[in-house]
Structure formats: C-alpha cells, structure tokens
Design a protein around this nucleic acid. Structure first.
Lengths: 338, 338
DNA sequence: TTTAGCACTCTTTTCTCTCGACTGCTAAAC
DNA sequence: GTTTAGCAGTCGAGAGAAAAGAGTGCTAAA
C-alpha cells in the first residue's frame, strides 16, 4: 500500500535510527543512503509518512523517528531475514555442537549464544508442564530416610526431587512405590499427578500414608512449580544510549527481576515461528520502551521452552530475527540427530 | 581513642547520612539528634573529626559525609547488633520454618527473606566442593541409554547429573557401577573424583571403557563446576538515590552479572561470623561505591554456602548485621532439629 | 570551653542569549 | 506533475551571568 520509494525511505530512516539512536534528518538520509533525489523531496515524503502514521517528530524542527506503527511495518515487511555473517554462522554452529546431557543445557547455550551475537539481553524459560507426558518414574533410596524421585518425560526433560521421611524406608517400599507410580503414570501427562490420583492411591492401594503422603506432596510441588527464568547479558543493555534515562533503566531492571512478568511475556502468543512485540503491544506499560522477540525451542512439535530477546524498541530487528531463525533451525537439526 | 562526644557525633552523622543520603550539616545534627550543645560546637568537633580522617567534605561549604575510615569505625565500634523488631523476628521465624527437602532451598529462603527485610539486594552461593565428603553414590537407569548419577555428601547437599551413552546399559552394569564407585569414594572428599581414580578404574577394574568414560567425564564436570549464584531483589537497589548516577548503576549491574566476580566476593575472607567490606576494601575498583556484608550458612562447622548483601556504602549496617545475626542463628537451630 | 554572629565559599537554580540543526513552504526548474 | 533551491521560522542545546541558599570557619564574647 506504500509506494516503493516511501518504503525505501522508511526503511532508510529506521535503519539509520536503529544504528544512531538520533532523530533522522532529510539531509543525513541523502548523504548516507543512496537515494537519488534531493533533501527537499525527502522532506515531502517524510511529511506524508508522518501523516500516514509511520513516523514521529520529537519537536517541530527535529528529524524523524519511527512510530510504533513504523516499527511494526518495518518488522512485517522490510526486515531482512538473512542478516547473518558466515562468521556468526560458524560461531553458532560450534556453540550448539557442544554435547549436552540435559536438554535444558542446550536451551541455556542457545540463549547465551543469542546474547553474545546480538549484544542484547536474552532470556529463556523451560517448557510448560502441561504439554509433557510421563515416560518413567524412578524412586531411589538415599541414606535411610530420603528418597530421590526422578520423573522422565517424553520431551527429554528430567525432573528430580528429594523427599524426606520421618521413618526409615525399606528397599521393598521403594520397589512398591516404583511399581505403583509407573503403573498409574506411564504415558500420562504431568497433570495426572493430582488430587484424584492421591485419593486413588490412598483408598485402593491401601498403602502406608506415612510414605505416600510426602511423596505426593513433593510431586505436586514439582508439577506446579514455575519454570526457572534463565537470563543472559543483562549488563549489555546498559551500554545502550536509551538506558541513560533513569526511568528506562529502572523499568528494565524491574522487568527482569519480576519472574511472573517474564514468565507471562515468554509464555503467550506464538502465532508465528518468531514473534515480535514492539513497545507495549503486549498491553504492559512497563514495556513501553522495549521490544521483545521470542521463539519456541521445539522438537517434533514438542515444546522445549521459549527463548527471547528483550531490548530497546530501536533494536536491530533484522539481525535478531536472522540469528534467531538460524539458531531455531540448528536446534531442530541437533535434536533430530541425537 | 575517640572521646565519647566525638563518637556520639560521628554516630549521629553516619546515622543521619545513612537515612538521608545528603551531606550532614551541623544545624541538622543539633535539630534532629539530642545533642546538648550548639551548632558551633558541633562544627568544631566536625573539623577535628575530619582532620582525624573520619569525615569527608564534598566541597568547602557543604556538610560532612563519612569517609571510608569513618564507616569502618562505625561498623567496628558503633553498630547496634540488635536493631531488629519483634515483627521482623516473627517474619523471619515463619519463613525459616518452611519445611524443605533440599538444603539449598533453605539457603534460598534465607536469602530472599534477608532481602525482603533489609530492602537491599542479597546474593547466595552454595558450599565450595572442597569441604564436602561423599557419603553415597547411586546410579539409576533412565530409559535404556541414560543414567542418572546421584552423589550424596555429608553436608546434605545432593548433586545429580545425567549421563548419556551410545549403547544400551544393562541393570547389571548399573550394579557394577554402584559397587565400584561406592567402594572407591565413600567417605572421600569430592576431589577424590580425579584423574588417578579414572586411571585406577581403567587399569585395575578392567571395566568397559564405553561405560566408564562418560561417567568419569560427567563426574569431573560436576566436581569442577562453579556453584550457582542466587540473586534476590536486584531491583530494590535501583530505588536508592545513589543509583541515579549512571556510572554507579552500571557498575552494579556489571557486578551482579559477572558470576566470577560474585563467586570471588562471596568466597573469600571469613575471619568473623559476619564480615563487612566497605567500598573497595576488597581491592576491587568496581566496588568503590558499594559495601558487602556476608555470613556463612553453617551447620556443625560444615559450610553450607555463603549469603550476603550488596548495597550502597551508605547501607544500614545496624539493620543488616542484626538481621543477619538472627537469620544465622535460626539457620543453625533449624539444622540441629532436623 | 562553649556560643553567637558574620563574612565567605560553593552549589543549585533560573534566566537569557546565541548558535546551529531541521523543517515547511514558496517559487522556480525540469 | 514532480523535483529542487532557497529561505524564513522553530526549537533544543549550551554558555554565561546572576541570584538564592545552605553551610562553614573564624573571631570575639560569654
């Protein structure tokens, strides 16, 4: 709907603003981007782009900055999705080739690599419990009054928890627990660990309450606990000019430090492979100065967690999206091998 | 060595500065603290305290602020060690009564409680591996090609790790592993997991390399991995006036974000129960504007980790030290019970 | 030894002025 | 019809000056 030249100019303005963080003037555009017209022509076009809502002006006699709508158009239509160098590809590949034993470690490596390459702050959370099925449950006696329970799910995520008892536990009791829980839970979603199960075991199995009660309590905790938030490169954001504003810096810290907020931000809205939320598109006032880009760490359509970047609205979307696409692809390949 | 009145005045100045963050004038002291003399007298005393090195003056016509030496004297001689209310005692007690299964969880609860009460940023790390002895090692088969190894130490810390294999593992092999490792490691310090052990098992036990190699690799990782840094209330610090300075804020973020630095800060120097490092007393330029107060989470002289507070030099030492003392005591009682 | 009083110092705030960067518009050129 | 040169007008950033205010140090008296 925008004429070709308007698109070009809009792209040039946003690119310029992304790299300088300063309002962009008509003169600067003509100088630094190969546009075949004069600054006066640019000024006319800019005025129209502003009228159409793609640009803002901090004050009458200043250059233009992109509006929220401008960024949105840029992300939807103008972004380069292969803005990634050979060197970066090599670096990512080498990082992701690290042999890991726990799948969460792979998410962590991907997250820190993402931050290293983009120089923004990256975050990750594990998968939501809801979408995981139990493959196996194992109880192990530690000492005489302590059990470790290990729950293996079909995503490869392993949850382990420790259960303490007031009386000694026998090997036989451990075996019974193993039998009961595998019998009832194998193949079921994690949510099968709930009150009805507890009641069933109490009544039908007629099994010692002193043993089963602490186990169920702890299992419930594991199922209901929030996933951990993994954060990388928080300090990098503080080098950016927008963080000179105390309010912006404080909002940022607040955001990162509020686990519920991070979980909420990373857990909603996955219409596309890569999802971009510009400013307060997520209806969160604290986000007004920031953008969030997320993708799901997936394997065979199983959710292994969410990885994201949180940075200034003026973030290098092309680079971030390109790198994410590549990492996402590599993660998938990696899983398939092993 | 300081006359009584000088001490009183120094205390009043530091108390005042701690609560206002503004240079303290002679007038303000007379008004707000019950000193039986005029502002002129105070001015004379202040001049002497400054000459003796306890106070600084930002500029000729301003009030005084404590110098590093002033804070040091305050912490060593003037601090109130029971600056804790009944309400706070109740809150701490209730928090620490939470039944936990893993000891690390207790450290975490203590850390977050500390931050909640003092309103400063608190940090914690687990114990150093060096001081722990192995009580038991257990291998558990998960699926067909995966083992979980659990190492139980005498501090109650449980380390678990996952080991993946390229070929199937039999129950018999698991039993052999359990036998070998318990045999060699029970009662030994964690560091017994090292090259010589590996070589011994290779040569003397003549046990399949395909099995033992991944196990030793993963064990080595566990023994050598750095402890996790647990952080609570980073955003609270940003409400403080000193964080209006961009440089201070940046240094702070940098500090918290650099794991090695945090480990270093929390792992050295435990002459007393509670250790206070004012400004760059720890020879770290980044700390110039901050103070750190730490204590060891101990049980029967076993190190269960370190808990600390990192805040502005102008921190409420009396409150921080009092709360820490109480939490430390409670942690000890708690362990003794159960 | 303490205190009142006052001159002096230095910061903070406010105001004004100038400089410079851009824009928007008009009128001419293509 | 579109593009461009030119120029008036707008606004912010920065420099300086001036005034206000907070506090000290010193002197001399209590």
């Amino acid at each position: 709907m925008l004429e070709e030249r308007k698109k070009q100019i809009l792209q040039a303005i946003i690119d310029e603003y992304i790299s300088t963080a300063e309002p962009v003037s008509s003169g600067a555009l003509v100088n630094r981007h190969g546009l075949n017209c004069s600054s006066a022509t640019i000024r006319n076009e800019m005025a129209e782009l502003e009228k159409a809502g793609y640009l803002d002006k901090p004050h009458t006699s200043s250059g233009r900055i992109p509006s929220a709508q401008g960024y949105r158009f840029y992300v939807d239509e103008l972004v380069k999705e292969d803005d990634i160098s050979l060197e970066e590809i090599r670096y990512i590949t080498s990082k992701l080739e690290t042999r890991v034993n726990a799948i969460e470690d792979l998410t962590k490596i991907a997250t820190s690599t993402l931050s290293e390459i983009t120089h923004y702050t990256s975050v990750a959370i594990g998968p939501q419990n809801g979408f995981q099925n139990i493959e196996e449950v194992k109880f192990v006696l530690l000492g005489t009054r302590m059990l470790m329970a290990v729950i293996l799910t079909d995503t490869g995520i392993i949850k382990e928890t420790i259960i303490k008892f007031d009386e000694n536990i026998t090997e036989e009791q451990v075996n019974t627990l193993n039998f009961i829980f595998n019998n009832k839970l194998k193949g079921k979603p994690l949510e099968a660990i709930n009150k009805p199960l507890e009641e069933y075991i109490f009544s039908e199995m007629n099994y010692s309450l002193a043993v089963i009660k602490p186990v169920m309590e702890q299992f419930n905790k594991v199922v209901n606990e929030e996933s951990k938030v993994y954060l990388e490169g928080a300090n990098k954001s503080f080098e950016l000019p927008e963080f000179k504003s105390l309010e912006v810096a404080r909002n940022f810290i607040n955001l990162l430090d509020t686990k519920e907020m991070m979980l909420d931000l990373l857990n909603t809205g996955f219409a596309k492979d890569i999802n971009v939320y510009i400013g307060d598109e997520k209806e969160n006032k604290k986000l007004k100065d920031f953008s969030i880009v997320t993708f799901k760490h997936r394997y065979q359509n199983k959710d292994l967690g969410t990885i994201g970047i949180i940075g200034p609205k003026r973030m290098d979307y092309s680079k971030v999206i390109s790198v994410m696409k590549y990492i996402s692809k590599k993660l998938n390949e990696k899983e398939s091998e092993g």
